[in-house]
Design a protein around this nucleic acid. Structure first.
Lengths: 160, 160
DNA sequence: GTCATTGCAAACCTTTTGCACGAAT
DNA sequence: ATTCGTGCAAAAGGTTTGCAATGAC
């Protein structure tokens, strides 16, 4: 199943006449098998043992390529860098505003959005990205917050 | 109406015991009266004539403050920097993948998203951000594209 | 053999920070 | 008077680029 996704994604590269280099295969494999929404740095560190001379620039270039092909999507969670996620099955993300954790939510009901947006905007719509913000269960417990009304206690503001 | 929004936003600053400085008022006014999704640089250039010694750092700090307060939201459109939008009324955005234009769409049906996401993820949900991607009417005309199937002609890829 | 891709390091550019001055409460 | 906010310039940090060498097709 994960292998199907990998094969399918590799086929997309071939279809676009993009060379299948070891770097691309290994990065793609990492993304297909890890759903931890890694940053560029995370991917780089995880793979440099397998690929001793791997360059950070190559990781950047490869991810950009995958994003352009629609294989992978970019995410921001409030920290400095960009995070990446293999987009084999449509889903959206819930981001913890306290710790930055990103959780996948598989929820098919967003399909109507594109047609609605197209109708209202006149755009030729190709896709969408939904991000939900909140406090993850762990941070709720850690901070002792169980209801929205308590959130103002948190100073999730510029003084962080 | 725009003045109401401004007054209301200024009141939020006071409520949070945040000082109402000329810089903050002017930047806020700019955002309330301009719906062109400006970048930091755009705001800075628009206001430096009114406020001769305005510092870019102040624009950054102020926008960050407004975002933390929920008065303003951040947007990315594919170019280098971040864009800002006064969030007086809930809406989402459609972004042109060709020219970067951002269009507002006022569509109330996304309210159920938060509860669904909360149920499925266990998060205490505070909000969401929806971004739709596509080709704006102008770029459709310019590129002679009127159907999704023609999009592959575009190489909106890393070779841009 | 050709041409895309890689690795490396330097360059880039947006954003942040430190500090002294000035202003709001 | 005190504390917060501003301006300036320098620094930081993520990302991109130029170029020679390498490797996929």
């Amino acid at each position: 199943m994960a292998e199907d996704m990998l094969t399918q994604a590799l086929q997309q590269l071939k279809d676009h006449k993009i060379r299948v280099t070891p770097q691309r295969q290994i990065i793609l494999t990492y993304l297909v098998t890890h759903h931890n929404h890694p940053s560029v740095e995370t991917i780089y560190q995880a793979l440099e043992s397998q690929l001793p001379n791997l360059s950070l620039a190559t990781v950047y270039n490869t991810l950009k390529l995958f994003v352009d092909l629609g294989i992978v999507i970019e995410l921001q969670n409030g920290d400095a860098g960009t995070h990446y996620d293999f987009f084999g099955r449509p889903h959206y993300h819930v981001v913890c505003e306290n710790c930055g954790k990103i959780t996948d939510v598989f929820e098919p009901d967003l399909s109507g959005i594109d047609t609605t947006a197209a109708r209202l905007s006149g755009y030729l719509v190709t896709g969408h990205n939904m991000e939900v913000y909140g406090l993850c269960p762990e941070c709720q417990a850690k901070l002792g917050i169980h209801h929205k009304s308590e959130l103002q206690r948190l100073n999730l503001s510029h003084t962080e």
